[in-house]
Amino acid sequence: MITGIPQSSTFKWTYRAYITLFFIYLALPLVTVCAFAFNDSVFPSMPWDGFTWDWFFGTETPRIGVFHERPILRSIVTSGFVAFWVASLSVLVGTCNAFLFVRHDFPGKSFLYILMLLPLIIPGIILGISILVFSSAIANRLEDATGLWFDGLRPGLILVILGQFSFITTFATLVISARLQKFDPSLEEAALNLGASKWGAIRSITLPFLFPAMAAAAVVAVLMSFENFNTTLMLVGSDAPLTVTMFDRLKLGSTPVLNAVSLLLMLASAALGLLSLVLRR
């Protein structure tokens, strides 16, 4: 903290007021979404018609709460399925990448590193369409050649998983590399010196050290997978994940059940986010 620079009190108060306004701006949309989850009206808009739990527990149309709204529940399960596979794959590949970039030197390393970072600066929608175009082309060729159907290469959950995996792996690699860089290699050398095999040393010394970062990367991957929209939109088939379902509802105009879903999503995201921060300590 810089206490040494004297500043006029007007400046200090203006600055503080600005910071306060900024945080109000940050909180405003979220607070609004949450508040309207309890509005006793069929539209998530003014006026305020009193408090209700209907949008969570309601069972009769039009007031069907989240917990009885099948399409939404199904899309949450779909999202969870996608997130699980994305997280597992990206942490696995990310761990390999971290070892590769932190521990090894090889020709073309910096080129590969830049290539690895590229998904960060490719717009998500382009990742989506490029994978869509490419997999469709392969599917067309294969079907023409064999006369069989290759549904896995058509829009659907497999492509959604691959599409999200294609850029979330970069984040996983960065998170895990950061921790691996802090690892003192002499610990591993000590294990080798005490008679452990190379793989044994990695498994008993290095991986446990890396575990918090891997877990944090998995949590981040789940968060990013859950909220991804751009890439998913281009690759989605008949089973829509939560964000796509919500988007379709939103375009049509919807009941505050969306607010209720959002509120639950916020709670879950905040919990997962905090978990990832704790893990990265």
């Binding site: 909220e227 916020m266 997962l272």
Partner: peptide
């Protein structure tokens, strides 16, 4: 950490 969709909503 909340979905962009929720924020936009």
């Amino acid at each position: 950490w909340v979905s962009e969709l929720v924020r936009t909503f």
